[in-house]
Amino acid sequence: MLHTIVCLKVVPKSEEVTINEETRTLDRSRARSEVNAPDMNALEMALALKTRHGGAVSLLSMGPPFFERYLRLGLAMGADSAYLMSDRAFGGADTLATSYALAEGVRAIGGYDLIICGDESSDGATGQVPPGIAEWLELPQITYASTVRLNAKEKLVQARRELGAGFEVVESPLPCLVSVKQDINEPRFLDFQRWDWAMNDAPVTVWTAAGLGLDESRLGLAGSPTTVAGVSLARSAERRHEFLSGNPEEVAAQLLEKIRPWVRAG
């Protein structure tokens, strides 16, 4: 029996996040939300492992109460239980405080063999939370995985890591934390037979910081060693914005004139 915990984050759809031109701050109010893309691949991987090896899949997320809807979608896809850490005290956390809180959530769920995360979140996008969780829990970690195979009898996990200019295959004992790359599999559709259960009856446990007995000084903004020193406009080079027109041959000829200085001679 394999118990996998999947860390799911809900993020604003990045193409719908706009900038408030006056305050130059992020305006998420008009952006719809979605589960962070690689986290869906993490969930699919956990469900596929469950199909093969049996066991259970738990979902863990830290964020505002509306995340619950997305956890229920995960339950409808095939997960067995869900845990949402929701408290103002968790807000404004950098990676040290985020990974600390999530590691405490994992401890509270307990009895796990495998933790699967996405490789990065689109609004955090640093990929530092998974190694952080692994360190707080003193677990081995395998980041940037594209395939994962399990030897349940030997309690070993074997994974292929994508390294940009190459790859490697690594092996680790369980329990272990794995972060997976986006698009490594096709997340399954909702299982409509599970819909009613997932939306109404399925257990979604909501935890506050106090409920978990956590020390608030280590959470959220208060527990974050990094601070934002300032926000500025991106340097944007002056660009010519010259539109070329004509039929493709004419455009190609004009373009060649424009770029000739950079074309390698001969």
């Binding site: 640093t126 990929g127 952080g132 940037y144 890591r161 990094t226």
Partner: peptide, 18 residues
């Protein structure tokens, strides 16, 4: 990939900001 793998782990071990 490996630089981030190490940095994320080290920052927590050293209890510092990254």
């Amino acid at each position: 990939a490996n630089g981030r793998d190490l940095a994320g782990r080290l920052a927590v071990r050293l209890r510092t900001g990254l």
